[in-house]
Design a protein around this nucleic acid. Structure first.
Length: 271
DNA sequence: AGTGCGGCCTGTCCGC
DNA sequence: TGCGGACAGGCCGCAC
């Protein structure tokens, strides 16, 4: 499940290998992703040069003079640099072959990811235009969250996972940040005190920044490695620990479902 | 406008 | 041991 830190780690991992490179060819083995891979994608990319990479939320962008390739890794996607000698495995859906022999390979067993071609400025594309601020930017602060949350009845956990409010807070980090901020996940967003919202903003930033740092240490794995995500390396306080004791107080962690998502919290530490 | 939920997929795990 | 079924999950897009 690539969350924002893993997407950023992926971006940093592939960038030095793709920047300035010309696309030799594109091979689409399986185009039925969340949305169909544009049939013209090989023609659109062939011969063009990749100018750079960018990330918006969990979306990756490859910039070219002709347009942008928008990539989402969905739940099970990965993007790695391989060589022509690397055998094609099951679920290796798209290869972008670059000048010099390197291949940018998109792998996604569940096919919740996507590759789309944008000719308009990315910020104006429907998938990106309505997104909230980046969690690690200054635009995401306590005053902003407080204003957004005012009067909202949705559970705070669902609220911070809403990409229109803030991007990149997936289920794992929502659980972790709420625990760290001492907020019960089912509490209505509008009923979380200003002080706790401030703590929540700080914890979201902290947990994401820490995971990106950890991801950075696994960057070498992006070339020829297995592409294992770095963020699993970080110890999780609540996620996946339902029924086990709270690391802070020892009370049994509760597991419930909020918005069809598994939610773990400490009934004593989180109010 | 805000909220709730169905659907897309396949690997993994559980119980029989 | 093999097999079917439940489950996991990001996020769009629709219905209310």
């Amino acid at each position: 499940m690539p969350e924002l830190p893993e997407v950023e780690t992926t971006r940093r991992g592939i960038e030095p290998h793709v920047i300035g490179k010309r696309v030799q060819d594109v091979v689409v083995r399986q185009g039925a992703l969340r949305w169909p891979v544009p049939a013209q994608l090989p023609d659109l990319l062939r011969g063009t040069r990749i100018l750079g990479t960018a990330r918006r939320g969990k979306y990756l962008l490859l910039q070219t003079p002709r347009g942008h390739l928008l990539i989402h890794l969905g739940m099970s996607g990965s993007l790695r640099i391989v060589s022509a000698a690397d055998p094609v495995r099951k679920h290796d859906h798209v290869d972008i072959r670059l000048q010099g022999g390197a291949i940018l390979r998109f792998h996604d067993p569940r096919r919740f990811g996507c590759l789309l071609w944008l000719t308009e400025p990315p910020d104006t594309h429907p998938l990106l235009a309505e997104l909230g601020p980046e969690p690690l930017s200054e635009a995401f602060d306590a005053a902003y969250l407080l204003e957004c949350a005012s009067g909202r009845k949705a559970p705070i956990k669902q609220f911070i996972m809403d990409s229109h409010i803030v991007v990149g807070v997936g289920n794992i980090y929502a659980n972790e940040a709420l625990f760290a901020a001492g907020i019960a996940p089912q509490r209505a967003a509008g009923k979380v005190s200003a002080a706790r919202q401030e703590a929540l903003v700080a914890e979201i930033k902290a947990v994401l920044a820490r995971a990106i740092e950890v991801g950075g240490t696994t960057l070498r794995d992006f070339v020829g490695g297995d592409g294992k995500p770095g963020y699993f390396a970080q110890s999780l306080q609540v996620y996946g620990r339902g029924g086990e004791p709270c690391v802070a107080c020892g009370v049994t962690l509760k597991e419930i479902r909020i918005g069809q998502r598994s939610t773990v919290f400490c009934p004593k530490c989180q109010r």
